[in-house]
Design a protein around this nucleic acid. Sequence first.
DNA 1: TCACTTATAAACTGATCAGTTTAGTTGTTG
DNA 2: CAACAACTAAACTGATCAGTTTATAAGTGA
Lengths: 205, 205
Amino acid sequence: MPDGVIEPKRGRKFDQVLAGARQVFLDDGFEGASVDEIARAAGVSKATLYSYFPDKRMLFMEVARTECARQAENAMDTIDMDADVAQVLHRIGHEIVAFITSRFGKRIFRTCVGESDRFPELGREFYDSGPKLVRDKIVGFFQIAIGRGELQIDDLTLAADQFHELCKADIFPRVVFNMTEEFTDAERKRVVDGAVAMFLARYGT
Amino acid sequence: MPDGVIEPKRGRKFDQVLAGARQVFLDDGFEGASVDEIARAAGVSKATLYSYFPDKRMLFMEVARTECARQAENAMDTIDMDADVAQVLHRIGHEIVAFITSRFGKRIFRTCVGESDRFPELGREFYDSGPKLVRDKIVGFFQIAIGRGELQIDDLTLAADQFHELCKADIFPRVVFNMTEEFTDAERKRVVDGAVAMFLARYGT
DNA sequence: TCACTTATAAACTGATCAGTTTAGTTGTTG
DNA sequence: CAACAACTAAACTGATCAGTTTATAAGTGA
């Protein structure tokens, strides 16, 4: 066995199952998705699916974990922490808005919340692999900016949480209660500009 | 038929059914609650239950509507709009935190979010009979305070939404992702004080 | 070719649950 | 008492669905 490459976890169809599951879970949520449907979407038999994953929940967890990490990473990696404070906040704000209004963001949030009773570890799993990373990144940025004398903050984590929440004003309830499908650039700008202005009024120097 | 009193909607057991449904839905959510369980909790036969409500969804809607209105009303009615701005904001902030950390708040939110696919009108129903009322109340207060020269706000609804979101900083994710059961007074105070300070830094005169 | 692994379709099991039906009980009113 | 309404327990229907089993096929490596 040459083992030059990391072997695909088990069997050839592992990724195929995951991809099918991702699609169906994102369309239908956890309870809404049937395993037969997932198997069909994955182009795989149900027996094969169950040879990779012990049950539906574990399959869902795998999908959620993988996707969250992917999303949070490449959202935050695009941001240049050396830029002007207002500019960085604008960029972060727009990333946050983009996430909560995205298909994936809506879906994963809804499912985590809705299923959190029958699935208690899911919430924390999601939080740690998504929002938490973003918060840490924001706190890191605050420290840099404070060092530069551009911000003045005593409670760093509170400030990060406040900024995050500010970016959800107006938009979040409309998303979460299924009241608006798409948001215009103007709507996004209004909220992010408002968040940055408020944040700087409080913590700017 | 003397009709001196408004007759109880239909039959004697209407309220009994509603009370049972309220209890079980609040414990188990919509999908988690079984109609048999509701009937048992209400001390009523299933047939009787179905003589009052055409199906489970309508029963849930009735419970949600009734409860939301009740909650939103008596939360906001306790607030004296003539007091000092900072004081009013503190009171409103604590009411908001109290709601989102309450058993009812958690439960209704989770259910609305989780069920919003198979139940699209539920989200708006909830929003209109709860958060919307609060927002209108806050906007009303802003207008008074602006008249008094104590606040300076151009986009009133955005400001109201911002304040609402600020009061959820830190607490909301911990509630929604099932990470914290109870919050101390210190935790609540930290968030509400932070929200008021930030709000006044931006909009205070 | 043989042995082994991985896959497949399809039938099956067992459970849950919304909503209906049935056959009978209770309470009220005239 | 008779008629009627509201109510009851319990069985039933019909559907969904997670997870298993069976019997079979296809690819691979020695």
